[in-house]
Nucleic acid binder design. Structure first.
Lengths: 209, 209
DNA sequence: TCCATCGGATACGTGAATGTATCGGATACG
DNA sequence: CGTATCCGATACATTCACGTATCCGATGGA
């Protein structure tokens, strides 16, 4: 829409307060859940009063959306990087290990992310945005998968996009368990097993943990 | 604890109002999300006033827990039945189809279930109860899986319990996508693909949809 | 250095949800 | 048929979050 010139000046102060609000919101959302957080709590955690909030956002939903987009984009980027690290050929086990590390880094993020999922599930517009984001993430994976060395990407999953779909599903599935038992290491191991089981045919068996 | 004799009399009326409250709660929770529902809304939907609620539950959390347990137990039972339908040998594709049907029946239930997940994720005691429930469900699956005819349950998943774990993870993963796109049929197909991919080795390929 | 504009704080009124305390009617039992 | 008990409704006071309107100080340009 408007370039930074025509748009109302965004002072340095403003971007900092906005960032502080977003950070504080992440903390509070992770701790209590989006549904149980008031605008005032976020402001308090950020060290502002409510006026600051209403000057930057119209509603808590809006802030939540901005918060999700910011972090999700960051993670998508990291995943893409993790898959791009190899040369022209993809080393599947190594990539799985790196991606696993990135995706299951922070339980707090998973909490907020799941909160956002149920939030979006009841708001078609938000759901669409989330679907788009997931599609982009899958695209980044699918683009890289065909370069797998020697592997036939065999499974009943169909094409590369199907495989990417399966990867995301495995991630989401492991996330659910992790949210309950909070065992990050076990979750990483599990995700690794699932991904290798899905991405390699039955003949190849992964090394035991 | 107390048998029905020693316990305070439970009149017929009481069980009916309790059931009506739970049903109404399910509807309202599915529509707006647990976090955005007031006690009064539940009572209104059930056709009662708040007095009825406080006479049956101490808090909304308590009602939520009862609601989840009721429905989850019912579904676990249905899954067990679906797997028990075969004779001594398990017909994997048929079982997968039946289980898929049971698990992805109702989007409203998935909404409430996911709400409960994030709810439990922040309350250790509730999380433990949910973990127990999931363990029971996995047990029911793992008990049946070894009877698979001819199949070696090959994958990198380890024993039968590992395979059951994978089944649940696939279910959870597909659920996430379904919550966003609301395409039940696609979700069923996907879950079917994932399960067959996980439970059969690479040599066996499922029929195309 | 002065001034105009902007960002954030404070104060206020409003609506809603909560939990309790009390009341009236139905139900089961003698 | 009477009665004690229990269940659910109503009324009430309190707390809490919201959104707005107004005000003060800071920031950045002239």
């Amino acid at each position: 829409m408007a370039t930074e010139q025509t748009a109302a000046r965004v002072t340095r102060r403003r971007v900092r307060t906005r960032a502080r609000l977003l950070d504080a919101a992440f903390t509070v959302f992770a701790a209590k859940g989006f549904g149980r957080v008031s605008i005032e709590e976020v402001c308090e955690a950020a060290g502002f009063s409510r006026g600051a909030f209403y000057s930057n956002f119209a509603t808590l939903d809006e802030l939540f959306f901005a918060l999700y987009q910011e972090r999700a984009d960051l993670i998508a980027e990291q995943v893409a990087d993790a898959l791009a690290l190899d040369g022209p050929v993809l080393d599947v086990p190594a990539s799985v290990a790196r991606v696993t590390e990135v995706l299951l880094l922070d339980v707090d993020w998973l909490l907020v992310k799941t909160d956002f999922l149920v939030h979006a599930a009841r708001r078609p517009a938000v759901a669409q945005a989330l679907l788009d984001h997931r599609a982009r993430l899958r695209g980044a994976i699918a683009d890289r998968l065909p370069r797998a060395a020697g592997h036939t990407l065999p499974a009943a999953l169909g094409d590369a996009d199907g495989a990417a779909h399966a990867v995301v599903a495995a991630y989401d599935g492991v996330t659910t368990q992790l949210l309950l038992d909070r065992d990050v290491e076990a979750a990483r191991a599990w995700l690794g097993h699932l991904l290798t089981a899905l991405l390699t045919d039955g003949s190849t068996t992964p090394h035991e943990s």
